[in-house]
Each structure stands twice: as structure tokens, then as C-alpha cells.
Write a protein that binds this DNA or RNA. Structure first.
Length: 429
RNA sequence: GGAGAGGUGGCCGAGUGGUCGAAGGCACUCGCCUGCUAAGCGAGCGUGUCGCUUAAUAGGCGACACCACGGGUUCGAAUCCCGUCCUCUCCGCCA
């Protein structure tokens, strides 16, 4: 959510940001117009309240000479009150409207983000690792999974409908091993602190992180109780310090958390239906940072490297893509996607999205800090990135480490976590 | 889920209709004092919005709002009433 005064002072800039995001900039005009009305009304209401307060004060201090005068004062106050009763609802409606408008305006865009329309204009900034070569035709993971009987697609659908699956035997363990590996790696090598979070949150958390009100379609919820399944750990992470003012010496804060993620994926209906690339439920280890505004840019670079380190450790070839303005997410001012090579499906799979949201989420969730004990509170900056998303890493391991005999080798660094070196034909029942 | 108690500023804790944005203590900031083991003295010290001032989204002045949240009573509410949420204690239930 943006600062009204900033928008008023730099409205051309805000319109420009919307344009390069392929969004309609007229929302800014609406905001300006309503804000003008808002200020007028506030002034009106404040002066009425001020009058009213003075009258009450006079009565309280017995500043009247007889009962008639007292009744007169009460009458005056009541008259003002009638005025207020008319104006106040108008103001609160205006404020709701402005808030709704503001909540729907995406973040600004960092200077160095390439201008572009869609993912075709994204820029590959780094590619690392050799793409594996095979003396046979490598299979896509769903084929491998079927051959080895390690994923049960049909029965997953039987339980929960399309886009659900069951992982079996060593594949289930592989996934569990990866989660632990990711967590340990970031805790030990990158100094993140681990959190175990609620997987269900209140609406305000989704507003704070930027999922609501715009992306309600993608969320599972219990509307009766205002309980929402998290689409990413970023949502609870953003809100742990909601409405707090942090002392500067605790910054920067680095957190890592494993959660499942739940998404309806309505927008992507019909896309990526085969295999486990895009399910309604998937696991993810998320990285999150609370940092000083002046450091957020370099913190993003480090965040990306932290995520890349995992792929390096797993010997998986990857590339880093800088998203163009038109492809940026709602809350992000700058984003790097990390994509891993999947040798069977022969495509780059997004396994991480690392973003600097600047003060966008901090404003929404009202998270601030003080530079000195006496200075004014300022909004801090937040960053988030996957470190990493599980299913697609699993896909990459299955496809890149597949052998001619149909078995799957486990990356060296992962073996201490899996307890086995390869996946072979699994039990059927 | 049932019964009871309670939610006040960074923390603790007063405050049951007007003099309360809120006593007192702690913490913190600035200054003074003091050579001695978390000493003393003085001052300051919540957040937001609106207006004026300002180069300033720094500072100053003023107004308004905020004592969990939302509504109500009243000329006037932290204080009374209603609803919601949350915390604690006891009981029940349960991995």
C-alpha cells in the first residue's frame, strides 16, 4: 500500500509504474480526486468536533451563569452533532474507497528492472552448471514416476481431485530429505533462523503480504471462520511483526521456514497438468528478510545467491532470470526467478522467485523500525524468496539423474539425508 | 465446548463519567553531578491524520482521532451498556 502523500506528489511516476506493468494508470487519478474530497471533509469535521469539544468543556467547567445558558450550550452541541452524523459516514465511506483503491495498486518498479511486456522480455543474467547429456532418450518425470511406481496420480485424484498426487516410498523420503537439507543449509551456511509457522492465517495477513484483495481467486479459505490456507510461507512471515516498531539493532532479520502451500491455480487452468509441476498443494522452504531500506538492494542479490547455493550443492544446472516490468508480481519491485533445467521435459522450471518488495509489504502490515531510540519510526524493507520449492526440484532430480537402467541416482550431498543412493522400482501396494 | 477473571503507552501498573493522552515505576534520550561495583539530580520521552509554517516526506505551532476491536448511551467515556476478538484460571474433550 502506498503513501497517499507520495502518490499526490509524484503521481506521474506512479502512473508510469502502472503503465510499464501493463496496468491501467487511471486508478491514480481516482485516488487523487477522492483524496482531495477526503481532505476537505476532514477539515470540516475536525472544526465541528473542535467546536463541540469546546462546548463540552464549558459545561464541564461550569462556564455558564444559569440553567438556561446551560441548556443553550447543550442545544448548540446537539446541532453540531447532527451535522457530524451526516458528514462522518461520508468520510468513512471515502476512506474505505481510498483504502480499497490503494490496496489494488501494485508496487513501484525498481530503476534497474528491464522494461518489457511479458516473460519474453525477461533477461537471463546468469547460467551455471552443464546440462546433462545422455546416451539414451531421457524421460519426463511423470513417465519415470510411473515406471518406478513412485507417484500415484490416479489415487491422488481419487482423494482430492485433479492436481493432487501421492508420493510413495523413496520419493516421499526424497522430498522429506530435501526439506531438511534446505532448512539445514540455510540455517548453517547462510545464517537464517528457522520458524515453524501456522499454515492457516487470518485475512489481514493476506492483505499485508499483498495477496488480497486482488488474488482471492487463488486462495483456499474457510469463509465461516476467516481462516485462509497459506499460498506461501511469505504470508505468515510478512506478518509476524505486524504493527510493531523494531529496534534497529535487531536488523537485519533472516528467517527460513518450511510450509506446505495451497493454491487454486485457477489462472493457470489447463496449464502444466501433467506430473507434479503445478499442484494445488506443494511444499516449499521460504527465505524472508527484514532489512534497512538502504540495504535491501544488496540483500536481494545475496538472497538470490543463497537460493542458488542449494542448486549448486545438488549439482543441478540453473539460470537466473531478471523479470521485466510487465512480468513482476503485484508486491514485487524487483524479482529474480531461478530456474532449474529439467532434462526429460527439456524445459527450465521456476524453483524460486526472489523479490525485493521495498516498503510495500511493510506499509501494508505496518512494520517499522527506529534508527535511534528517539527518532521517528520508518518503514523497513522486506524481501522474500523460495529456497526452494520442492516438487520442481524433485522433477529436476528425477529427470537429470535418471540412469539408463531406469533408476535414479541421488546427488552426493543429499545422501546423508535420504539414507539411500538411488531410487529403483518401488512397491506397487 | 462450559464457568469465572481480564485486555490501559516499549514494559509494569494507577485510573469507574469532565481537570486524562492518561498518575507512579522501569527502560530510553539529553544535561548536570559523582572516581568505584546496574549511584544521585534535572528535563524530555506514544502513534496517526489534517492545517499553518518550512527547501524539506527535518524541525516548530495548532486541531482532530486513538486506553483490544466495532457499535450504543451522554453536552461529555479509558471509565456506563451491547456485540466481536484475544489472554489467563478451573472443568470437559482430545493428537
Amino acid at each position: 500500500m502506498h503513501d497517499l502523500n507520495l502518490i499526490t506528489q509524484n503521481y506521474q511516476k506512479y502512473k508510469y509504474y502502472l503503465e510499464i506493468r501493463n496496468e491501467n494508470p487511471s486508478i491514480i487519478d481516482q485516488v487523487l480526486e477522492i483524496n482531495k474530497k477526503r481532505k476537505e471533509l476532514i477539515n470540516q469535521i475536525n472544526s465541528l468536533r473542535s467546536q463541540k469539544n469546546k462546548i463540552s468543556d464549558q459545561i464541564g467547567k461550569r462556564q455558564y451563569s444559569n440553567e438556561e445558558e446551560r441548556q443553550n450550550l447543550i442545544h448548540q452541541s446537539n446541532t453540531i452533532d447532527q451535522n457530524l452524523k451526516e458528514l462522518e459516514p461520508v468520510l468513512s465511506e471515502i476512506e474505505t474507497n481510498i483504502r480499497n483503491l490503494l490496496l489494488n495498486i501494485p508496487n513501484i518498479v525498481c530503476e534497474d528492472v528491464p522494461i518489457g511486456k511479458d516473460s519474453n522480455d525477461n533477461v537471463v543474467v546468469l547460467q551455471e552448471g552443464d546440462l546433462p547429456s545422455f546416451d539414451f532418450d531421457p524421460l519426463p518425470h511423470w513417465q519415470i514416476a510411473e515406471n518406478l511406481s513412485i507417484i500415484d496420480f490416479e489415487r491422488g485424484v481419487k482423494l482430492s481431485g485433479s492436481r493432487f498426487y501421492i508420493m510413495k516410498g523413496k520419493l516421499a523420503k526424497l522430498q522429506r530429505a530435501l526439506i531438511n537439507f534446505f532448512l539445514d543449509y540455510h540455517i548453517q551456511k547462510h545464517n537464517y533462523k528457522e520458524l515453524y509457522l501456522p499454515f492457516i492465517v487470518k485475512r489481514h495477513c493476506l492483505e499485508g503480504a499483498g495477496q488480497l484483495p486482488k488474488f482471492e481467486d487463488n486462495l483456499y479459505k474457510d469463509s465461516e471462520d476467516d481462516m485462509w490456507l497459506v499460498p506461501t510461507a511469505e504470508v505468515p512471515l510478512t506478518n509476524i511483526y505486524k504493527d510493531e516498531i523494531l529496534p534497529i539493532d535487531v536488523l537485519p532479520l533472516y528467517y527460513v521456514a518450511y510450509t506446505p502451500c495451497f493454491r487454486k491455480e485457477k489462472i493457470a487452468a489447463g496449464k502444466d497438468v501433467r506430473g507434479i509441476k503445478r499442484g494445488h498443494q506443494f511444499d516449499k522452504v521460504e527465505l524472508y528478510k527484514f532489512v534497512l531500506p538502504e540495504n535491501s538492494d544488496q540483500e536481494l542479490e545475496r538472497l538470490v545467491q543463497d537460493a542458488c547455493d542449494i542448486l549448486r550443492a545438488l549439482e543441478l544446472p540453473f539460470r537466473v532470470v531478471k523479470l521485466c516490468s510487465g512480468d513482476l508480481g503485484f508486491a514485487a519491485a524487483k524479482t529474480y526467478d531461478i530456474e532449474v533445467w529439467a532434462a526429460g521435459s527439456k524445459e527450465w522450471l521456476e524453483v524460486s522467485s526472489c523479490s525485493n518488495t521495498l516498503d510495500f509489504q511493510a506499509r501494508r502490515a505496518n512494520i517499522r523500525f527506529r534508527r535511534t531510540p528517539t527518532s521517528k519510526p520508518e518503514y523497513l524493507h522486506t524481501l522474500n524468496g523460495s529456497g526452494l520449492a520442492l516438487p520442481r526440484v524433485v522433477i529436476a532430480i528425477l529427470e537429470n539423474f535418471q540412469q539408463k537402467d531406469g533408476t535414479i541416482h541421488i546427488p552426493k550431498n543429499l545422501i546423508p539425508y535420504t539414507g539411500f543412493e538411488k531410487i529403483e522400482l518401488n512397491w506397487k501396494y
